[in-house]
Design a binder for these strands. Structure first.
Length: 877
DNA sequence: GACCCGACTTGACGCCAGGCCG
DNA sequence: CGGCCTGGCGTCAAGTCGGGTC
């Protein structure tokens, strides 16, 4: 399948002067493989556990190996899995099974990925996740591919879109066009839709252009037209034909190019670009706030908002939190008065007295030793049990507690099954509680926590985010984290620093006889409390206000405003980096190529990492082995990014970029830095010269929001709400793909799919029978007997035809459902919605199209985005 | 300019409740 | 009406990036 996306841009005259336009053309298709990400593979799941080891979940994989031995005698409840074997702990040294084994063993759907030949992923092997996938290259299935690759076709479109290609005008090749016209950049990313149908390209420029913000203020920022486009993503699909080119014609852009610096592209009144209808709307909107459209729109959101606000205010003597906060201009000050109750601690450990077996005999443990043993025991079903590093680190820390001379000398001779079984029983008991009991428990907890849930900031009652101190447990690092399995010790009040207003009462320490480490009154920061991370003492764990707070909302808004501002600069920035692709100054060249990758592929900046962290990379830390040059101008990326999520993507790039990468790789070892002269500080310093406040991550926000806005604008058609919601989801999906937001395939995915296909088969059987009956009915014969030999009712041919039609519909519906499910099984929509898509785009779209905002944002998001609810319906990113 | 510290955002995942469907 | 699925929510790990220091 294809999926490939490659968009390929070409650049024409590269070297030329500044004015040279870059053109991205789409190539026919590139075929490449794609990226994949693997999905499933991902993480071992970890279960969470609470302090007492109540953790939960089982993981998906069963551990084959190790750790627990089964005590033959008792295996009471045991989880089914457990039953199968007892697991004994594998010794550290002998990793027993290796991951492969485990993976194979696993039930889970996850498949392993295999690294490709290129060996890019170096370590992949280790990580379970990775392995799963099998050859990437070969596979066709999209699942395996990285999200981006799935975008298929899009690429071009994307690009185009992004660049705003001007469809309008020209369609054809850029070559003919004047430079300036060609100049557009292409965006890259664009992946848009997974579905090909949605082609963006077709739309006219005009439609693509954005209007600018509705409000006057906003207006300034937005500039005009700039078609900024998104990057494209990769591939283009074949479907899209190659024909279109995107180009932007922005004269201004070309002009500006020269000044490498900043300046936004022309703003002008951009109405010119807008379609007339839009302009009209715009003017109306901007002039009067109460334009009908707006009012209506308001309604769309108002009710839910009201509810939320009401709630917030209810029972509160504090003023309501304003959606708009004053901007943080006044220096660094984040608040004037701050009152809160501190943090709440997990309950102390309650020993259960269940003994583990050592060489088959029960062993007495002190409560402290037992607590840690319990943390380990309850993780039996997780993939961590197969990881030698996890076992090694756990054993090192546990052994410290046991003492050198303890009876227990080897982890592999320990059998934790009794504790595991006890834990399963406890879980079961909890499950069996009646609804009333559960409710009572919940209320009790709420009562205890109530006071910690709120803070009063400048007179406004605001929700606190994570007021619960993290319980002790075993560290669950992602990927191949060197510290996985280490004991994350319990945090006490004496570890905690509280930050509170000078005149506010100091929160009472919840543990009698103990006291806080320190009390601060620092109003230049937003944290309410912090403690040092027990795993990495130089790091901190902070307690912040919840996402719904004004403080967070304000910074969220600022983030999106900055991204919007990038729109005004993007053409120049793209022109500038394009020019530098061929710079003789290698540092400049590296900066240019890195910026291009960040813009086009939405890569993260890639800070340096310590030895004691998982080995993952971002743009600036890419290794030579992470990028493979495929002639004539494709690049195949394969690396582990944040959270050890694999990024695999093959993209067509401008020839100068291709050549530059080849040059950067020359005479380096696979593990050397591709961008050896670069780091995130240098990169960001450079970006700031192009636009105030610009950093690498702004490109992600920009490309994500831009894509959402474009897709919603272009793809929304008349229809019912459900249809519009689907359009939204598709747009959201594209954004998720661009950002490579993946999720593991749900454990029941396979079975769900097979159930669905069984049903479809069944319906098809019914259909066949109906057809037979129809033939017979037409000839005046009675229907055949049914499967049970019973005579069926005699129906008229018309009635049978009706039945056939409805059955066909059912089948179709199920097939669509199945496809969507399969399609989305590895794509996580939530992250982009929460962090990358400017909520104003969504709210304005809902208002314009009469879609109740609740269909898109849940309660939490409505609260988090309260600041965006009164946006003008004509708002465009 | 290399570190390091510090603050804050981003991100995947687990659990649970509530809704859906047969 | 009971089991299954999904979405909401919380958790906590893992990024980004600015600023200060030497």
């Amino acid at each position: 399948m294809a999926v490939e996306a490659s968009a390929k841009p070409f650049l024409n005259d590269l070297d030329e002067d500044d004015d040279a336009p870059l053109i991205f053309r789409r190539s026919g298709n590139s075929s490449s493989k794609q990226n994949q990400v693997n999905q499933e593979v991902k993480k071992p799941s970890s279960s969470s556990q609470n302090s007492n080891g109540q953790s939960t979940n089982a993981q998906r994989g069963k551990a084959t190996v190790p750790s627990f031995k089964a005590p033959a005698e008792k295996s009471p409840i045991g989880s089914p899995k457990a039953s199968s074997s007892s697991c004994k702990v594998a010794t550290v040294k002998s990793p027993v099974t290796n991951s492969k084994a485990s993976s194979s063993a696993n039930v889970q759907p996850k498949q392993t990925l295999k690294p490709n030949a290129s060996g890019v992923v170096k370590e992949e092997i280790n990580s379970v996740k990775i392995e799963t996938k099998s050859n990437v290259d070969d596979e066709d299935s999209e699942d395996e591919k990285p999200l981006n690759s799935r975008i298929k076709g899009i690429s071009n479109s994307a690009n185009k879109g992004a660049s705003e290609p001007a469809p309008v005008k020209g369609e054809d090749s850029d070559d003919d066009k004047p430079l300036s016209a060609r100049y557009s950049v292409k965006p890259t990313s664009g992946s848009l839709s997974g579905k090909p149908n949605v082609s963006i390209e077709k739309k006219s420029l005009a439609s693509k252009t954005q209007t600018n913000g509705s409000t006057v203020k906003v207006k300034q920022q937005s500039s005009s037209v700039v078609p900024a486009k998104r990057p494209m993503n990769k591939a283009d699909s074949s479907d899209q034909s190659s024909s279109k080119k995107l180009k932007l014609s922005d004269a201004s852009a070309s002009a500006k190019v020269k000044q490498v610096t900043v300046k936004p592209v022309a703003k002008a009144d951009d109405d010119d670009h807008l379609p007339i209808s839009q302009r009209m709307k715009k003017s109306v909107a901007s002039t009067s706030k109460s334009s009908p459209a707006k009012q209506k729109a308001k309604k769309v959101v108002s009710s839910s908002l009201k509810k939320i606000n009401k709630k917030k205010m209810k029972n509160s003597k504090y003023s309501k939190s304003s959606k708009m906060m004053p901007s943080a201009t006044d220096g660094q000050k984040k608040w004037t008065t701050l009152v809160h109750s501190g943090v709440i601690f997990p309950p102390p450990y309650q020993p259960h007295g269940i003994k583990i077996l050592y060489k088959g005999k029960p062993v007495d443990l002190t409560p402290e030793q037992e607590e840690v043993a319990t943390m380990f025991a309850v993780m039996k079903d997780t993939d961590y049990m197969q990881k030698p590093k996890f076992l090694e680190n756990f054993w090192a820390d546990w052994r410290k507690l046991l003492g050198k001379n303890h009876v227990i000398q080897k982890l592999e001779d320990c059998d934790f099954t009794p504790i595991y079984d006890w834990h399963q029983q406890e879980k079961e008991k909890k499950k069996q509680m009646t609804a009333a009991e559960k409710k009572a428990l919940k209320e009790e907890k709420l009562k205890q926590e109530e006071k910690y849930m709120w803070a009063v900031v400048d007179g406004v009652k605001e929700k606190v985010g994570n007021f619960r101190v993290e319980p002790p447990g075993l560290f669950r690092g992602r990927g191949e984290h060197p510290k996985m399995g280490k004991l994350k010790k319990r945090i006490y009040p004496s570890d905690i620093t509280i930050n509170i207003g000078k005149d506010a009462p100091i929160p009472e320490c919840p543990i009698p006889g103990e006291r806080w480490k320190e009390i601060k009154h620092d109003n230049t920061v937003t944290w309410l409390a912090f403690w040092n991370d027990p795993i990495n003492p130089k790091e901190f764990k902070y307690v912040f206000l919840a996402a719904s707070s004004s403080l967070k909302g304000q910074s969220d808004r600022e983030k999106y405003e900055k991204a919007r501002k990038l729109k005004d600069y993007i053409d120049n920035i793209r022109a500038a980096y394009t020019k530098d692709f061929t710079s003789k100054d290698v540092t400049k060249k590296q900066i240019a190529v890195a910026t291009y990758l960040i813009d086009k592929l939405a890569l993260r900046a890639g800070n340096e990492k310590d030895e004691d962290e998982a080995d993952t990379v971002g743009c600036c830390t890419l290794k030579v082995e992470n990028v493979e040059c495929i002639s004539p101008n494709m690049l195949k990326f394969d690396f582990l990014g944040k959270d050890s999520i694999r990024y695999v993507n093959t993209v067509e790039v401008e020839l100068p970029v291709y050549k530059a990468i080849g040059q950067f790789q020359t005479s380096k070892k696979p593990n050397d830095d591709l961008f050896d002269l670069l780091d995130t500080t240098k990169l960001n310093t450079h970006l700031k010269e192009l636009m105030p406040g610009l950093t690498a991550k702004v490109f992600r926000t920009y490309n994500a929001s831009f894509t959402l806005d474009e897709m919603l604008f272009k793809e929304t058609e008349d229809g019912d709400v459900a249809e519009k919601v689907v359009v939204y989801q598709q747009a959201n999906k594209q954004v998720a793909i661009i950002c490579n937001h993946q999720r593991t395939v749900s454990r029941s995915h396979e079975s769900q799919m097979s159930k669905l296909s069984e049903k479809i088969e069944e319906l098809k059987g019914v259909l066949k029978e109906l057809k037979t009956d129809l033939d017979r009915a037409k000839k005046g014969k009675p229907p055949l007997k049914d499967a049970n030999g019973k005579q069926k009712r005699n129906l008229s041919p018309e009635a049978i035809e009706k039945k056939i039609a409805s059955t066909n519909q059912k089948i179709e519906k199920m097939e669509i459902n199945m496809r969507t499910k399969e399609d989305m099984k590895t794509v996580a929509l939530g992250t982009s919605k929460i962090n990358y898509c400017d909520p104003r785009i969504t709210v304005a779209w809902c208002k314009r199209h009469d879609v109740p905002i609740e269909k898109i944002f849940n309660k939490s998001l409505l609260a988090k985005f309260a600041w965006a609810m009164d946006v003008d319906p004509q708002f465009r990113f």
